[in-house]
Design a protein around this nucleic acid. Structure first.
Length: 228
DNA sequence: AATTAGCCCAACCGCTGCACG
DNA sequence: GCGTGCAGCGGTTGGGCTAAT
């Protein structure tokens, strides 16, 4: 015997919400709040499952929900947070007042992802997309450095200091690649939305209150993340 | 004007984590 | 510690809309 489904599918309405249903849901929540999403549809006189009501409320009917396309600064904040948090849309949404995880997820998949790919940046890793030949070259160089470090450490095995410095140089190559990738990413992104990531200031074109406050928030989040 | 292709977004589905008995 | 039920989350889908042919 498995888990009871969240709603018995018989008699449950699916698909787009009507204005009448919206009204019923809003009226109920405004007067009673949402004590239990599971029991809410019955109490509100809706033929929907609790999940559906919850989603409708959070993504559409909530009074503080912000509609319309994301601003450049909001977009930047999403990219920045995605680079740190990955596909944790609800966490990302919590940093953008009035925006929902669903909205951000949709915007990411339809707009930002394409923009980043166009800029030659992998939207998953937030690093430049490297061609096969370039990747081979990096691997060759890395292998050469690794071989050199192994040789060096084997030839001077008595000296612990020299072997440690050699191994750090091989991993240093990888760090260098990662750092240059990130520099490239921030530079491209800065150009794209008009934000200087060194000073967290925006250029004249983007110098509105929202951009500045978001730039400040990005700065704060960056500090918090780096301090973890 | 009709058809097709692509885009966008609301909504659904299934899984996970958490609280509680 | 275990099982159950619920809310919440993220991936995916489907349908409406618009631009291109």
């Amino acid at each position: 015997m498995g888990r009871k489904p969240c709603c018995d599918k018989v008699g449950i309405k699916k698909g787009p919400w009507t204005a009448e249903e919206d009204k019923k849901l809003m009226n109920f929540i405004f007067t009673n709040g949402h004590c239990s999403w599971r029991s809410l549809p019955k109490l509100a006189g809706l033929l929907r499952c609790g999940k559906s009501c919850r989603l409708r409320w959070i993504n559409y009917l909530r009074p503080d929900v912000k509609r319309g396309v994301l601003s450049d600064s909001e977009e930047k904040l999403v990219i920045d947070l995605h680079a740190q948090l990955g596909n944790r849309w609800s966490k990302i949404a919590s940093h953008l007042p009035g925006r929902t995880d669903n909205e951000i997820k949709n915007h990411w998949n339809t707009h930002i992802k394409k923009k980043l790919e166009k800029m030659g940046i992998d939207p998953k890793t937030h690093k430049p997309i490297i061609s096969d030949s370039a990747a081979e070259k990096i691997n060759e160089d890395h292998d050469d450095n690794l071989k050199a470090s192994i040789n060096a450490s084997s030839s001077s095995s008595s000296s612990s200091s020299s072997s440690s410095s050699s191994s750090s140089s091989s991993s240093g190559i990888v760090d260098e690649i990662n750092l240059s990738c990130m520099d490239y990413f921030w530079e491209e992104l800065g150009d794209f939305i008009g934000l200087d990531f060194n000073t967290f200031s925006v250029d004249d074109e983007h110098e509105d209150h929202e951009s500045l406050s978001l730039a400040h928030e990005i700065n704060v989040i960056d500090h918090q993340l780096w301090n973890i």
